[in-house]
Write a protein that binds this DNA or RNA. Structure first.
Length: 306
DNA sequence: AAGTTTGACAACCGCCAACCA
DNA sequence: GTGGTTGGCGGTTGTCAAACT
């Protein structure tokens, strides 16, 4: 074989492109039941015709229950600019300062909004600057690194932020602040049209039922790397069990799961199911989650001959 | 109304580092 | 110590919808 590593999977046998709701549900359910100890093996175990990497990306960037979607606030945007100024294209590091935000999302925001905006503002500054203006004055203004990072965007050189002078870490939680004004800004409300959590039109469970405050904001614990697999493994998903006897966490997770289905637009005659089973959907251990829900979905594993 | 352009975002690709046998 | 495997990261591309002509 020549140089390079073997592909992570057989590219001819994996599906590519946008994920279908059925695939989302399949992946979500599998991870909640079994965790994700091995991404490479996960697609096969879950019955998905996807590359393990693709599953990981989909989970991290979209399906994780703690992922925060919706527009970035001006404060968040400014923080991204500052962080990028300090550490460059270290998107994962930048994302670590934004609970619930993903590196991919921040990267997209930078590439589509902030980069252009900064270039424009730099141009304006250059136009406004007098001929006698020295480069050192620019440096002292704090724009030097920013300018450098704009010019050398792909260098990826890192300067470890000296714990970032401009950043007062203790304040960072204000991105998920409990201050009402900040919460109002951050709430996945009307100004967050893409939020996965905002819709309540079709939801059969109210936000309060699934643990979402009225303002639409989900409080995510700082220890956001909860092992949802363990969490769900601890639940009793057996059909016979009485939902009333499930621990609170089980019910809450089940509510969330139902909420996810709604948000994905996957509800089909689940009303009775929810009523009959006190909201907890029945999931068979072998599980073919989406299959019963989406008998006609074109991309469902069922239709692909699994 | 139809075609084209632009913007936003999801997803893929390839590289690299960490881990393990 | 070495080679293989895996997860993670950053760059790039693809897709779709909105805006524009």
């Amino acid at each position: 074989m020549g140089r390079g590593r073997a592909p992570c999977c057989d590219k001819t046998k994996v599906k590519k492109g946008p994920w279908s709701p059925a695939e989302d549900l399949c992946l979500t359910t599998f991870i909640q039941n079994h965790g994700h100890t091995n991404w490479r093996a996960l697609p096969k175990q879950a019955g998905l015709l996807r590359c393990g990497k693709s599953c990981r990306l989909r989970w991290i960037n979209y399906l994780r229950p703690d992922v925060k979607r919706g527009n970035f606030t001006p404060q968040e945007e400014q923080t991204i600019i500052n962080l990028h100024n300090s550490i460059g294209n270290k998107w994962s590091k930048i994302a670590s300062y934004f609970p619930g935000r993903t590196d991919n999302e921040i990267k997209n925001v930078w590439n589509t909004h902030l980069k252009k905006r900064l270039i424009m503002s730099n141009k304006n500054e250059a136009l406004l600057a007098s001929p006698s203006c020295t480069s050192s004055s620019i440096t002292s203004s704090g724009n030097h690194n920013m300018e450098k990072s704009l010019l050398n965007d792909d260098q990826g050189e890192t300067q470890e932020p000296e714990i970032m002078n401009w950043i007062e870490k203790p304040e960072f939680p204000k991105l998920k602040s409990t201050h009402p004004n900040d919460q109002a800004k951050q709430a996945f409300s009307s100004d967050s049209p893409t939020s996965s959590y905002t819709s309540n039109e079709t939801s059969e469970f109210s936000k309060s039922e699934v643990g979402i405050p009225d303002n639409g904001k989900i409080e995510i614990p700082l220890e956001s790397d909860i092992d949802f697999g363990e969490l769900f493994d601890s639940l009793d998903w057996n059909q016979d069990s009485n939902p009333e006897e499930k621990p609170d966490g089980g019910i809450e997770c089940s509510k969330w799961f139902g909420f996810l289905e709604n948000e994905l637009g996957l509800t089909c005659d689940m009303d009775n199911l929810a009523k009959d089973q006190n909201i907890v959907p029945n999931l068979e251990p072998e599980f073919s989650p989406g299959l019963d829900y989406f008998p006609i979905w074109p991309c469902s594993p069922q239709n692909l001959g699994i």
